[in-house]
């Protein structure tokens, strides 16, 4: 069984990203970049399926510029068998990415595609659902548990009301939530080994996808700052302030 893992390059989640001087975009010039945390979780799940004897090959794919190689090497170090970089220098939107991923899907015919539920950069939460729609594969989003039984997969999802379990035949698309697993770290020997694993490069043009941004960013600002409040000495003062000053209780 083959598993395809789309990987997004984003800021390290510990870094607080700020607008640039001109307020036209975010300033990523000195920001440490990483694999989107939800994609790490997707990859970890695939590795566990492979370790459990349920998968034979894990392919990591990323769409973007040359720098995405770094994140694909990380994926290879963690346990992907090979990687595909589909190159473009254009700004990408989830709809474009999903169209590119459809082409990769058609080339590779994986049995399972596991993606992050959301990129922590744009907070879109779209690509997996769009990809599933365009491939007509069953869609299971926000997974916190994945169980493979032969050609079926049973997935528990985190929804606003609690948990829901769905079942699907393969191939299918799953998007990951945070509690699905805790990703491992890459070991040094594996980082070295990853340098020799295959990383294929294609272009979006070769795959016949036209990238055309239809939603553009006009302005990026910091949110309004909250005024720093006061420290209260004790519970009595707190209760008094909430009653008489804030008037919220």
């Amino acid at each position: 069984m083959k598993i395809l893992i789309p990987i997004k390059r984003v800021n390290d989640y510990n870094v607080k990203v700020r607008p640039n001087q001109a307020n036209t975009d975010v300033d990523l010039s000195n920001v440490k970049m990483a694999v989107n945390p939800f994609c790490e979780i997707a990859l970890e799940e695939a590795i566990r399926l492979k370790e459990g004897g349920n998968a034979t090959e894990i392919i990591a794919v990323s769409v973007g510029d040359e720098k995405n190689q770094e994140q694909l090497r990380t994926a290879l170090a963690l346990g992907a068998d090979r990687a595909i970089l589909v190159k473009t220098d254009k700004a990408l939107q989830p709809l474009d990415v999903s169209k590119v991923l459809v082409k990769v899907y058609e080339k590779e015919s994986p049995n399972l595609v596991i993606m992050g539920k959301v990129g922590i950069d744009g907070d879109h939460n779209q690509t997996g659902q769009m990809f599933s729609a365009l491939t007509n594969l069953p869609q299971i989003t926000f997974a916190s548990k994945v169980e493979l039984n032969g050609n079926d997969v049973e997935v528990t999802r985190e929804i606003d009301g609690g948990l829901e379990t769905l079942s699907s035949s393969l191939p299918a698309v799953i998007t990951t939530d945070l509690r699905l697993n805790e990703p491992r770290y890459a070991s040094l020997p594996n980082i070295m080994k990853a340098k020799r694993k295959p990383l294929e490069e294609l272009t979006v043009e070769e795959l016949g996808v036209e990238v055309k941004p239809t939603v553009t960013t006009l302005k990026v600002e910091s949110p309004p700052e909250r005024e720093e409040g006061v420290k209260v000495e004790n519970v009595d003062v707190l209760v008094e302030k909430l009653k008489n000053e804030a008037k919220v209780i």
Binding site: V26, D121, V215, L218, V220, S222, P223
Partner: peptide, 11 residues
Amino acid sequence: IYAGACIATVK
């Protein structure tokens, strides 16, 4: 965007 660290105006 970016976990609310920034607010984008998009067209």
